[in-house]
Write a protein that binds this DNA or RNA. Sequence first.
DNA 1: CACTTGACCTGTCCGC
DNA 2: TGCGGACAGGTCAAGT
Length: 290
Amino acid sequence: MPEMPEVETLRRGLDGLLRGQRILGCQALWPPALVGKSWEHDPWPLEILGSGRRGKLLWLKLEGGMSLAVHLRMTGQLVFVGPDQDRFGAGHPTASLGDNLPDSSTRVVFRLDRGQLFYNDQRKFGRLFLLPPGGLETLPFLQTLGPEILDPPLGPEEFCRRLKAWPGRGIKALLLDQRALAGVGNIYADEALWAAALHPLRPAGGLLEAECRSLQEALVQVLSTSLDHGGSSLRNYVDARGKMGSYMAFAKVFDRQGQPCPRCGAPIVKIRCAGRGTHLCPRCQVAPEA
DNA sequence: CACTTGACCTGTCCGC
DNA sequence: TGCGGACAGGTCAAGT
């Protein structure tokens, strides 16, 4: 589900809601979601001092140098429900998910000084890591993670160098590979490739200088716009208060197969590429010679 | 080594 | 209405 804009939107929300509160305890309704020995030692209470993110991995900074890291994978959610939670009537357009929690997808519940934090995950792919001081650096995922695109800004030269490091791979497969670049997933890969008018199967090594550059500009544009609109919600994603993101209204190709390309009018098609559903304009995005 | 496929899970949607 | 199959925003292990 969540790619960088969704995870960053969530992090910002959680930071404002949780900073300064203590986690008083935690109840695992589905224990496999919890990874690491630290969970067993009943370390609570622990104060939440702040938050961080790299790629799609999010963490809360806890007292004593500990961290609570979360990877949401496909369907994970972290939703805070305060004691003063606004209660809207059922069916109200801004009714919050929190009104009905816990639900059948709730896997972990954290008890806080003021309110509760629910970890929901329909598909049970996500994981929560409680880590001792220095533990973040030991996570294999973080050790092999490529650079951020927006923060700090990745210069065009370095961007091109990352892509050319895997010259034989299709450009979409590379965008999805977190070792090449951090934070891009299926939605923003399709959107950026359309904006740069590049076919997803083009080998990375064959991209012209100008094509590399326009792909980088497209990624910056797409990711920034999504951040501005609280990310994308296709089916599951919600922010720290249970609200959906609105970026999908701006999507040009993702989940729009059969609709006209906004640039040339040709019908958007959906193919399979790097094992993932892939949306593109067959006229604007010219396939490489086989 | 480089790259692709299957596995991990549950829910939903689509065709018969 | 019911049922089987395909598919879903991510990552890792195993396979080719």
